[in-house]
Computed example of a mutant assay.
Amino acid sequence: MAKFSFAALALVALSALSASAQSYPASQASTDLTSLCSSLSYLPVCSIQKLTCTTMSSTYPSQCNPIALMHTGCADPAASSNAACSTINKLCTSTPTATECSANITGLPTAKAVSMNDYSICYQMPMMNSCTICPGSPSNTTLIYQSCDPLNAYGQLCLEMPGMSQCANWQTFCSANSKIAPYCSAAAAAASPSSSPSPSAKSDASFNGVGVIPAAAVAIMVAALGF
Rank of each mutant, 00 (worst) to 15 (best):
M1A: 15
A2D: 14
A10C: 14
L11N: 03
V12L: 15
V12D: 06
L17Y: 05
Q22P: 00
S30G: 11
T31S: 11
D32N: 14
D32Q: 04
D32H: 09
L33Y: 05
T34D: 15
T34L: 14
C37G: 10
L40N: 07
L40Y: 03
Y42G: 02
Y42K: 00
V45N: 01
V45G: 04
V45I: 12
I48C: 12
T52E: 00
C53A: 08
S58I: 06
Y60C: 11
Y60T: 05
S62W: 00
S62E: 07
N65K: 07
H71R: 14
H71Q: 13
C74T: 02
A78P: 00
A79L: 09
N82K: 10
A84R: 00
T87N: 10
I88P: 02
T93H: 08
P96M: 11
E100H: 02
C101S: 02
L108S: 04
P109R: 00
V114W: 03
S120M: 03
C122P: 03
M127R: 13
S130L: 06
P135V: 13
G136S: 11
S137F: 13
T142H: 06
S147Y: 13
D149V: 10
N152R: 08
Q156E: 10
L157C: 01
E160L: 07
M164W: 01
M164K: 03
S165C: 10
S165L: 10
C167S: 00
Q171L: 11
T172H: 03
N177T: 12
S185T: 01
A188L: 04
A188E: 04
A189S: 14
A190T: 14
A191H: 06
P193C: 09
P197H: 06
S198G: 11
S200A: 09
A201W: 01
K202P: 00
S203K: 03
V210Y: 06
V212R: 05
I213S: 04
I213D: 01
I213A: 06
P214A: 14
V218F: 10
V218Y: 04
A224S: 12
A224D: 06
L225Y: 05
G226D: 12
